[in-house]
Write a protein that binds this DNA or RNA. Sequence first.
DNA 1: GCACTTACGAAACATCGGTAGCGAAATACA
DNA 2: TGTATTTCGCTACCGATGTTTCGTAAGTGC
Lengths: 202, 202
Amino acid sequence: MTESRRGRPRDTDIDERVLRAATAMLLEHGYAGLSPNEVAERAGVAKTTLYRRWPTKDHLAIAVVARLQEDDEITDTGDIRRDLTGYMVKIAAALERMRSAGRPAGDHDASAGVVAELVAAGARHDDIGRLGREVFARRNALALALITRARERGELRPGLDPVVLLDQLAGALYYRVLITGAPVDRAYTERLVATALDGARN
Amino acid sequence: MTESRRGRPRDTDIDERVLRAATAMLLEHGYAGLSPNEVAERAGVAKTTLYRRWPTKDHLAIAVVARLQEDDEITDTGDIRRDLTGYMVKIAAALERMRSAGRPAGDHDASAGVVAELVAAGARHDDIGRLGREVFARRNALALALITRARERGELRPGLDPVVLLDQLAGALYYRVLITGAPVDRAYTERLVATALDGARN
DNA sequence: GCACTTACGAAACATCGGTAGCGAAATACA
DNA sequence: TGTATTTCGCTACCGATGTTTCGTAAGTGC
């Protein structure tokens, strides 16, 4: 793993100071207000030192939000509707938190804000894209297992593809945040899960 | 509408030449390969002239893809499953087209490509965001009317919220393109519509 | 004709993300 | 005690997206 490095070791305090400054700037002023130049200055670090750790502004921003995400565990109560709702509410809350980053308090304008920039960052840099897909795959694996168990105990249709169900649920939330700008509050999330489970057909 | 303008009129031929050059560059080299500087040069136009029409590269890119989208009419055969599938297949096809823009042929890497940048553009500029939401609202209004009619003739549950159903369907497609990188081919689309209609519950 | 207004082109400038080159500092290893 | 290796800070620089300024062209209204 960590090979015994030769040469001067990295100052881990620098990582901390830079990430702290970057976090503050990203949350207060949004993605456009995150300036690597100013982050380096505020952290008391040379710009080159910053760029050795995070080769682009996108990488820096990813590192910031990655630190902010506490990995949400998923609970299996045996009631699939309850469990799925719980998972979706967590996703929705995380989205709403990022959605409001960088805009004046009370700004109810529909805006994807930081979320959209992170998605674009994944599209611009292969490594970020891969990383993001891995993170989502790992997080979704838990939900997929949950769905599969519910299916096997007869709560869900035998022919159901768990991936499709998860796409429907998580997809709807991201779609509203990124595309239509509609809110993703708790009431909506509950209606969403109920509709997906019960189906639209009469 | 068009007030009788005073002063020198704009050369409409310039719009055409610029958009043509920008379209070629965007489709061949992707979003990063779209350079306003080079577009102006290739179109034989001063940079200032280009920026008078499209104040940022984002606006230029939006104008390009807006021209490429033919407004897809929606058909109502009376079979909601068939009609929804048709609509979703059109969306999926448009997404796959943009997804492959700017990357070497045969590149099967999962990448949101241009789509993600357009979403980010909507997040960066209020006017683009509003425009995008209007476009989606208008397009979705047709699908919502379709769903409502199906509900009223008894094909769908009376309590169904058409918006939720549409979020589930379109959301799943965008989610796969933007987030997980999974393909959105016809087989998936059909499974998606079937699952949303039939529901996940046993 | 003349004033007024707007569009076009050219070139210089500004800003920002990111890089290159260098000397100095801090470690591992011999 | 060297010597190799890597990090750090500094300055200067590059490329790309926009902006400013200004002279000139092409229209409208009188």
